[in-house]
């Protein structure tokens, strides 16, 4: 068999993919059946690590927290992004400025956004409570990150704030792709603004909806930095996402085997969800 020499060009990249993606996934998988602690001998423990994940409330909670976080962010971030895009599309004077302004937070790092918002939520002179106080809403003042019932939502809001502009930029590109004569036709037929949006624009926006949902799902299912910086997983574990759990097992307790099992679960969940989401949305694209 003669291999075309042009394929040799992929060899370096292929090696990198094998060493940094395929091999690590295989090694994680192998480690997940052991009690490896980073040094010394790894004893085979069979399915014990996986058994632990699915039988202890702590880990089921982590999975549920991750899903809740992901679900809320994906829905709200994309709705707000779509809202801004639909309006800005019709406002060319302010469009470019607003698109850039909304996008700015996603250029910042999670570390900095996390610290700044931690202070905004702070009960001591924090921006949010001070704002509520200054407009006479003292009753709504709250220890946002200190209360298990609000901490996760506070972090969710921060994440949404960070990436609304990202969704909006993608939606705007989708709008720009709608041919002008389709818009015109809708107007001549006397369709209302909502009808034009629902029956003309939305179906044509379908590819950008798919991209946005898939990207934000991947991004949120592996969320780590914001809870790590803002709450460290607390209070009482209410913001302990799956990735935070992995990191704590890994570099807090050196349970490499167990962390391996957790990351394999996470990888399978992500691939599974993204695969079906993609397929589902592509189907919808044709039927909108």
């Amino acid at each position: 068999m003669k291999i075309k020499s042009i394929y040799l060009f992929t060899l370096p990249a292929l090696l990198v993919m094998l060493i940094f993606y395929l091999y690590p996934i295989a090694l994680s998988f192998k480690m997940s059946f052991t009690d490896f602690t980073g040094v010394g001998i790894a004893n085979d423990v069979g399915w014990k690590n996986y058994d632990r994940i699915f039988s202890r409330q702590r880990y089921l909670d982590a999975i549920q927290i991750t899903f809740t976080f992901s679900f809320i962010v994906v829905i709200i971030q994309n709705l707000i992004g779509l809202f801004f895009a639909a309006l800005l599309f019709k406002m060319p004077t302010i469009r470019n400025f607003c698109r850039a302004a909304l996008f700015t937070p996603s250029m910042m790092s999670f570390v900095i956004v996390g610290y700044v918002w931690q202070f905004i939520y702070s009960p001591y002179n924090g921006g949010l409570n001070s704002l509520l106080g200054s407009i006479g809403l003292e009753s709504l003042q709250h220890t946002w990150l200190g209360d298990p019932s609000t901490a996760l939502f506070a972090i969710t809001a921060t994440h949404i704030w960070m990436f609304v502009g990202y969704s909006c930029a993608i939606f705007l590109a989708g709008f720009a792709n709608i041919p002008a004569d389709i818009q015109e036709a809708g107007r001549l037929d006397g369709a209302s603004a909502w009808q034009r949006f629902r029956y003309l624009e939305l179906p044509l926006l379908a590819p950008s909806i798919t991209i946005n949902i898939v990207l934000s799902t991947i991004g949120t299912l592996k969320t780590f930095e914001l809870p790590f910086i803002m709450t460290g997983g607390g209070p009482v574990g209410s913001t302990r996402t799956l990735s935070l759990e992995i990191m704590q097992n890994l570099f807090g307790q050196y349970k490499f085997g167990f962390a391996g099992a957790l990351s394999i679960v996470m990888l399978i969940v992500i691939i599974f969800i993204v695969f079906f989401l993609n397929r589902f949305l592509k189907n919808k694209e044709d039927n909108l």
Binding site: P24, I25, S28, S243, L250, M266
Partner: peptide, 19 residues
């Protein structure tokens, strides 16, 4: 393979890379 790489969260390869 590239798509798999794009979807892989850092946590999956971080332990092996560290080792």
């Amino acid at each position: 393979l590239v798509a798999l790489g794009l979807a892989t969260p850092s946590f999956v390869n971080i332990t092996p890379v560290y080792v």
